[in-house]
Design a binder for these strands. Structure first.
Lengths: 160, 160
DNA sequence: GGCATGTAGTTGACGTGTCAACCTGACACT
DNA sequence: AGTGTCAGGTTGACACGTCAACTACATGCC
């Protein structure tokens, strides 16, 4: 292999900071969300994504792709949300293999009730703490990392 | 409540970027780590934290505090790591309630073998993609958020 | 000493995520 | 039509994390 290149102080601060922020911020946002609306973050993501679609319904595979979830994860999660009455499964007219997730009335009410508070929570614990320069910097940083991870073939795929 | 304040375009890019980066980057780093060393990220964190302590051993409660984990989570995880032979539990001399986690020889070998590759992976998929200004900006951003979350009493504690 | 209260740690139930195996229907090609 | 291949989705086993209940020891106060 090549020389071990450890992290410099500045790099270490950024890396550890990221890890800690991730752990704490997610916990805080999840707590606020659960307290205010009874939803988990994955619940919120599913509901808000489906609510933006035509007719409040979406193919499972499209939903999974948009959220970057595995089919399996989504299937399990939809099963649980279905049991709580937030969404329903329907057969797909176009493709007999397909399944469509539909927001129930309760699901729509839940996301309507949760949205404003969630955004407020994101602001309070995150966005409003940053200067507008920092907001722009963060967008640029995340974009750079995402561009790298999306580009196939660098070497990051551990897939056979 | 107050007016709903939605996110501006720039804020939205930063927020969504953060969420996507988080999901993808964590997945990538976890995959690299599992492929190269057979460890999960929590495994790595436990091993590297304990390996920095005197005698390669540490009280459970101290370890939990340092990693910001719940006691329960740590206890479960140590049980699993113990079954794989990476760590061992020992009674604590000072305090009969206490338990000490000790790195086994296999645990020490595992973290030694994993460290360099893990840092390389962090560089490849994250740190080396950023300019040094961006590294500094990220450190400042995460610090600001952590300062806010650490300060008790704002309102973020949903605890009874 | 005896009791209240707090701290250390474990456990079990449950929700969640991953992986691999599987079923079914679409599609192409002959 | 028949067959091979692929995409859409489900399922089961297992790893992981949280919460609440529980045991056992420590500590302070009378």
């Amino acid at each position: 292999m090549e020389d071990p290149r450890w992290l410099t102080d500045a790099e270490y601060r950024a890396w550890i900071g990221y890890r800690r922020m991730r752990a704490r911020l997610d916990l805080q946002l999840a707590r606020d969300l659960a307290r205010d609306s009874g939803l988990s973050e994955p619940d919120y993501d599913v509901l808000s994504t489906v609510s933006e679609a035509e007719q409040h319904q979406m193919r499972l595979s499209e939903l999974a792709a948009r959220m970057l979830w595995s089919r399996s994860r989504l299937s399990h999660h939809i099963t649980r949300m279905e049991q709580r009455g937030l969404v329903a499964r329907e057969e797909c007219a176009d493709d007999a293999r397909g399944t469509v997730v539909v927001l129930t009335r309760a699901g729509w009410r839940a996301i309507e009730a949760a949205a404003q508070g969630h955004v407020a929570s994101v602001r309070r614990h995150f966005i409003d703490l940053l200067t507008s320069d920092q907001v722009d910097a963060l967008a640029a940083i995340t974009q750079a990392v995402l561009d790298h991870l999306a580009s196939p073939g660098q070497d990051q795929l551990g897939l056979p």
